[in-house]
Amino acid sequence: MPPEEQVRHRLLDAAEGLLRDQGYESLSVRAVNRAAGMNPAAVHYHFGSKHALVTALLERRLRPVWDGRLADLDKLAGTRTPPDVTGLAAFLVEPMARLAADEDERWALALLARLVLTDAALPWRSPWSAPEPWIAMIRRALPGLPAEVAAERWRLARDLVLVTYGAPLAEPGERPVPPSPDVVIAFVAAGLAAPHPRAEGNGA
């Protein structure tokens, strides 16, 4: 591993330890640099900001869960066959449900929900972390759906899934049990495919 990558991993490891202990709000760049044994400018030099550091950490933790599903999405996006809305809902829901069921990864899912639901301008590297590919897939599955409506439905679906699976602990040691993935997938698919009221009102 190149020396620069080693430094990045040390900073990410330090940030993860602090996030697990203190949470996002209490995390400081200075503390990460100190925990990693680096100079005070290390995080800004290698990542640019606290947001970018935490985004990179989430991608490192969550990417293994998503890798296979993202590869399937890439293949589907490259075919002429329109996707199925239930399949799209499953792509979104199943990785989240898997993370929520993993005691060691649940903190990362809660952090993901907290960041995405409060700040949409995170520097993700994966194209599937941006809304545009999902919106395009939704419009292929539902020909005639206006782009702005597809974008709205994507945001609602994403937020619903994040709230459902990424809710913080209600009480120490307790957490609401989310519905089964099949239930959430069916609900999300129904929302994506719902009749378009504005189109109906215009006689479409």
Rank of each mutant, 00 (worst) to 15 (best):
E105K: 15
P133A: 02
A15Q: 00
A194M: 08
M1W: 03
G87A: 04
A194K: 07
P178M: 00
P95F: 07
D21G: 06
T164Q: 10
L92F: 09
F47S: 01
V7T: 15
L11H: 01
V43A: 11
K75S: 12
P195A: 14
D102P: 00
L162I: 10
A108G: 12
L70F: 14
R63W: 09
G191F: 08
A36L: 15
E200D: 12
R80G: 13
S26A: 15
L115P: 00
D102E: 11
L156W: 14
K75L: 11
A77S: 03
A147N: 04
G78T: 08
R158T: 13
P176R: 13
A170S: 15
P123F: 10
E174P: 00
N39W: 13
E132P: 06
A52H: 08
G144Q: 07
A150Q: 05
L169M: 08
D104N: 12
E105Q: 15
P133F: 07
L192H: 02
P195S: 11
P131Y: 03
D182Q: 14
R198S: 07
A150R: 03
P172Y: 02
V184L: 09
W128I: 13
A35C: 07
P179G: 12
A31C: 00
R139I: 08
L156K: 14
D84F: 08
R153T: 10
A130V: 06
A71E: 10
P40A: 10
S129Q: 15
V188F: 01
S126I: 10
E59A: 14
N202L: 13
M137K: 01
R80H: 11
L117S: 05
G173M: 02
L53H: 02
A113P: 02
E105V: 07
R60V: 08
P131V: 03
P143L: 09
H44R: 10
S126C: 12
W107V: 09
V93S: 02
P64W: 05
P2D: 15
M137Y: 05
R140F: 01
R69Y: 11
T55K: 02
R60W: 11
V149N: 03
G144S: 08
R60L: 09
R155I: 11
M1C: 05
Q22E: 13
V183D: 00
L12Y: 02
L109E: 02
V163N: 02
D67S: 12
R153A: 05
E200R: 13
R80W: 04
W128V: 08
L111V: 05
S126R: 06
P127W: 04
L73D: 01
E200Y: 04
R61A: 00
W154S: 04
V85K: 02
V163W: 09
L12W: 01
P179H: 11
L111R: 00
F91A: 14
A189I: 04
P127I: 07
T164L: 08
V29Y: 05
A121M: 14
T118V: 06
W128L: 10
P127Y: 04
G23T: 13
L11E: 01
A147M: 06
G201Y: 09
L53Q: 06
D119H: 14
R63I: 00
G173W: 06
Y45I: 12
G166E: 03
A89Q: 03
A89E: 03
R80C: 04
E25A: 15
S28D: 04
D13R: 13
P195T: 12
G37S: 06
